[in-house]
Design a protein around this nucleic acid. Structure first.
Lengths: 304, 304
DNA sequence: AAAAATGAATTGATAATTCCGATTATCATA
DNA sequence: TATGATAATCGGAATTATCAATTCATTTTT
């Protein structure tokens, strides 16, 4: 069996892939350009295949190179985790924790969460990244995040998760509109284009549509919002309706508007909030405690 | 950030864990005892924690040591796979392939499988390990096997799988017993202790009991068989009944006995045959082709 | 068109490391 | 008290990694 490639050389390859330039990659690795260059050549020799096509000046990763990069990233992430795990043994709630969160959850838990963590685990330094579900899962996979908070159900791509709690959707409607309608409210009573939704990228849109059994409908306004806060403003200004998660209402997102929250039809219109992590992690204890903290902030706790 | 532990030192730790002796571990790694010894110390320093408790003569892995071993094994397996993958690029059906198979499947496919592989992919060298489901999954996890063939449904513990085909169970019964019973046969007609089964460890027992809706029953003979072949012999000699998978019958397991195969009651009494591999593998193409070969040998092919 | 700048490979000297063999220390057992 | 087994330690030899400087080939600027 031939010799295994060294982690150092694999990390050089990753840096080169990230920076697409030998000098900058070398700087990032705190080594000279020549070191990185020969490291890559070394790797190609050990692996017995070409990883980058050199083109006298520039270069391009080969297909094989890209694949090796992916695999190398996994190996390095696992090794970093091992190191971190060993070094912080016993201290499961200390040090940095990189958490991702989707924008329809983040504003409504982060304040309380950081207060709670500060009180109970003041040596934990929580680092937050707010982004879409797809991007967060990608960052999780690449080892750039330790854990992400998502709305479920959702394909979490081989990752593992804790289900933290349920967050019901409320039908939020302008006072005037609500008064003009008979209860219980049937969506067919609503004027055309009176339902406002978030942009497609937000999984909340899909969850709300599914949970409330709204098909593609003329009731839906073609203008979409980019955040829950602007969604509320649009529904208010447009004297229309929308769906807002309970946790946002609890944090006062409707304050200062003429909107009222009603129970939507459809049994149990809600999303679940989940904490997702890599199956290969060794920080389950940390995530478990974090899960407890977050679950305590949710409208309906589900964590067993 | 501190320096990552080297793969070499991690492999020393694994060897030490396996051999529980510095000299033998060093031999296995083709290094001197002193090298291995200082490698371990080095590792402990880098990780900032004690991995083995020294007891002036012998030693013992600490809890942390055991955990590090597990994680290290995953890292090394991933790296070996990367090396293998790169070195054999394009040659997906060449070189060694370590396959595990449970004993109630192995004897009935291996002959035809190795013929088929020899004909189509003669550079592939198939290495077989026959063992229980639990052991095979353990070896798969540890990187000692590349792929395993199991009966499903089964908890495959975060691994991935192809479903290859369905293998129906037949109710196999001694001629005399069959003649004495009215068709269609109801298990309540059978004499007490007339149903023979395999030992518990064999998942076939569970599958057959579940599929044929046999509860814990006085009909079941307390003596259990250790292989399908001896199960057949016991049913024959005891003038009783048992359940045998179609693939075994197709390969003539009933030849030379006074047993007849009947359709058991219960809709679709069968097991599925699956090919299971690590989610982190990079040999999916290889496994896919192997899956094709095996699926072609099964009574009912399911692979899409 | 010439000059300057850019980017990667190469070179040669030097620093760091790995590795081995020999030795030592400790204990169990004959 | 020897003897044997085991792991740690030490010192030097061999190997490897790294850097600064240079080269080579392009691209950009003047």
């Amino acid at each position: 069996m031939s010799k295994l490639p060294s982690l150092k050389n694999l990390s050089y390859l990753l840096a080169l892939h990230q920076h697409q330039n030998f000098n900058r990659a070398a700087q990032a690795c705190h080594v000279s350009q020549s070191t990185l260059s020969s490291g890559i050549q070394n790797l190609e020799e050990q692996l017995g295949c070409q990883l980058i096509e050199r083109d006298h000046k520039s270069f391009l990763f080969t297909g094989m190179g890209e694949e090796v990069v992916d695999q190398a990233r996994r190996i390095l992430t696992a090794t970093e985790e091992l190191l971190y795990f060993a070094q912080s043994q016993g201290k499961i709630m200390e040090g940095p924790l990189r958490m991702g969160c989707i924008p329809t959850i983040a504003p409504f838990i982060l304040g309380d969460l950081s207060k709670s963590l500060q009180r109970n685990y003041n040596k934990l330094s929580l680092n937050i990244r707010e982004d879409t579900t797809a991007n967060l899962l990608h960052l999780l996979r690449n080892g750039e995040l330790d854990v992400v908070v998502l709305a479920l159900p959702m394909d979490i791509q081989g990752n593992q998760s804790y289900v933290l709690g349920r967050d019901p959707f409320k039908l939020v409607m302008h006072k005037q509109l609500a008064e003009s309608l008979a209860e219980p409210i049937d969506y067919s009573q609503l004027p055309d284009q009176s339902i406002f939704l978030l942009e497609r990228e937000h999984c909340l849109t899909g969850h709300a549509v599914a949970a409330c059994e709204l098909a593609e409908s003329v009731k839906i306004n073609p203008f979409t919002a980019t955040s829950l806060h602007s969604l509320v403003q649009m529904a208010d200004a447009g004297r229309g309706a929308t769906f807002i998660p309970q946790m946002a209402i609890d944090r006062g997102i409707l304050n200062g508007t003429d909107l009222v929250a009603l129970q939507p039809k459809g049994q149990q219109a809600s999303r679940e909030i989940g904490l997702v992590y890599r199956p290969t992690t060794n920080r389950r204890q940390t995530f478990r405690k974090l899960a407890e903290c977050i679950a305590d902030l949710l409208p309906e706790r589900l964590l067993q």
